[in-house]
Nucleic acid binder design. Structure first.
Lengths: 339, 339
DNA sequence: GTGAAAGCGCTAACAC
DNA sequence: GTGTTAGCGCTTTCAC
């Protein structure tokens, strides 16, 4: 019972009395090989506990078997969740994923993007969070890329994104229908420069309802939860809007802290709708009404389009927009006006 | 300006008029190579945009360059955060990480563990969440393992864990000092079987203060946030304890929803301490007092001990216990008794 | 239908 | 101090 080294196609070949090439073909279920020998070899491999070496395989195939991903943040669960789903999908297809997070700095985002040309990956998944001016950089990669974010029709890369414009529009309309008048949008202003269409959806709904200067109703929270908290604390101690539309559930939790400190009640004093439908949004003191984005479908789409492109570089570029769904919970109420 | 294939040690060797072996050595900064030629080759590699192929390197070195990890859950941010930190540390050392989540099923945990013997990895990081009876299974792996969880002194694997016992003890003592009397512990009972020492710390503190039958004060919430919510809703509509000690911030958010629905206030009606110090615990309507566990240090320790072991299998087994720190926030108050 | 042999890009034992 | 060579485990072209 000695510790023996793992079986390889050579040891199998020897045992089976055939060549290594035959074993290789048989294990890849190559139709060229006689069905009987094929089965026989497969059975024997199974029995010997044979495991393909991805390393050797990939080296031989001239690929790396890794896809590199750039995501915005480690703290917002939507991204770690998406990352986990991307991982799962990729692992199913025998790819591994090299994860990177830009966190809250444009410099870091650029740096990582540049470092991507040093890392050999078969393809890239990019969530731009500070700038959409990455084209030259991504072109230099010289490898398939899929962007998670809205792009113009002529963008040469695959892209999948969420219809935040429509989502924000619907959410705002809903608030208005509930009798809310003084509504503010809160979010990271920098996101607009890389295709965040929530503000524009908000503005469209507000102007459509005859409200003046909706642009002034947009408040920059900064990128992270702490800055959202601080901004909200300052803002809400001066102003008492009826309702808030918040860029993400994540930032909403920052705002909620400010609301709690100011002894305001949700939704009686202030209604809230946010975006994403992270698991936490359904828990905590007040379950949040939110615009849900599809997780599994999105992750699947991201890795599938990328892998198809990797395996066939001549495929046409695909741009795919996904819809949101409103999840009604307890953070919005009907506004009763007594005047 | 044609698309040329990447430089290899061979193309470099040719250009430099030396052998490939020399290039390889120079790039590994091997002292054997004349310092001048070394620098020269390094410079040229830089200039030509040479990138080492990890595939070829690892194949040659007879390793895979991957470490496989089994974590409990994709939803509790503490694990995704820890995962991200583990990833970072591993990437620094040129290892990639194969992540797996057992989610809420013992079957899945077992299945993944078994599948680990099929995946060639250089080492394993295991967070047991349902059972600690994995020894035979882990032994079969025949590779270095580090366990994140408490183990007995004779456990043959590396392990690092958090001193939850002490943490729970201190948290409970603190509640008692604040005048809380009727205190309950809520958490996933199944965790005890794999070394969760929070309940025992809680019991020790409670009995030490002369409270009778502290065992009855332990409530099983199940594994996930939804079951924690349901359990709390049922429990709290019948009983009104002074304070709750909750196994994790994550589960606390489930409990908070129940508290919110029952129109109870934190901390006026009920005080709360939980564990982990995830980012969310500092936000939401009420910032949570929590027992913080070290993230960065933990991740570093996990991958460092594993990698040392991988590179030197004769190293002694290390068991390392990490301390918690109490983070005072707003979910606990002094209990004023009027009687 | 199967085998021989070269090649993927690197490392390391051995020779000089 | 540097070169030669074999080898890591697989795929695939070309022969037979």
């Amino acid at each position: 019972m000695k510790t023996q080294t793992n079986p390889t196609i050579y040891t199998l070949a020897e045992k089976a009395g055939v060549s290594a090439a035959t074993v290789s073909r048989a294990l890849n279920n190559d139709k060229l090989i006689n069905i009987k020998t094929r089965r026989q070899i497969q059975k024997m491999a199974e029995k010997e506990g044979y495991k393909k070496s991805p390393l050797a395989r990939n080296l031989s195939l001239g690929r790396t078997g890794v896809i590199a991903a750039l995501l915005p943040s480690i703290n917002n669960p939507i991204y770690t969740y998406l990352a986990a789903k991307i991982l799962e999908r990729a692992q199913e297809r025998n790819y591994s994923v090299f994860l990177n997070y830009s966190e809250d700095s444009m410099e870091r985002e650029k740096k990582i993007l540049n470092s991507f040309s040093n890392i050999q990956a078969d393809g890239f998944i990019i969530f731009p969070s500070f700038s959409d001016r990455h084209e030259k950089c991504l072109k230099k990669l010289n490898r398939p890329v899929v962007i998670r974010g809205s792009v113009s029709g002529k963008c040469p890369f695959n892209a999948v994104w969420i219809d935040f414009h429509k989502g924000a529009y619907e959410a705002t309309e809903y608030l208005i229908k509930q009798g809310q008048k003084n509504i503010r949008y809160m979010g990271f202003a920098g996101a607009v420069s890389c295709g965040d269409e929530r503000p524009s959806g908000f503005i469209k709904a507000m102007s459509g309802n005859g409200m003046k200067s909706p642009y002034k109703n947009i408040i920059d929270t900064g990128f992270n939860i702490e800055s959202a908290y601080r901004t909200a604390l300052k803002f809400l101690s001066q102003t008492k809007p009826d309702a808030l539309l918040i860029q993400s559930d994540y930032l909403a939790f920052g705002v909620l802290r400010a609301i709690g400190e100011l002894k305001l009640r949700v939704p009686e004093d202030i209604s809230i709708i946010s975006f994403d439908n992270i698991e936490f949004s359904n828990y905590g003191t007040i379950p949040l009404t939110t615009m849900s984005q599809p997780f599994d479908e999105q992750a699947k789409l991201l890795v599938n389009t990328l892998l198809s492109r990797i395996n066939n570089e001549t495929l046409p570029v695909v741009h795919k927009k996904l819809d949101m769904k409103m999840i009604l919970r307890s953070s919005v109420c009907k506004k009763i006006r007594n005047k």
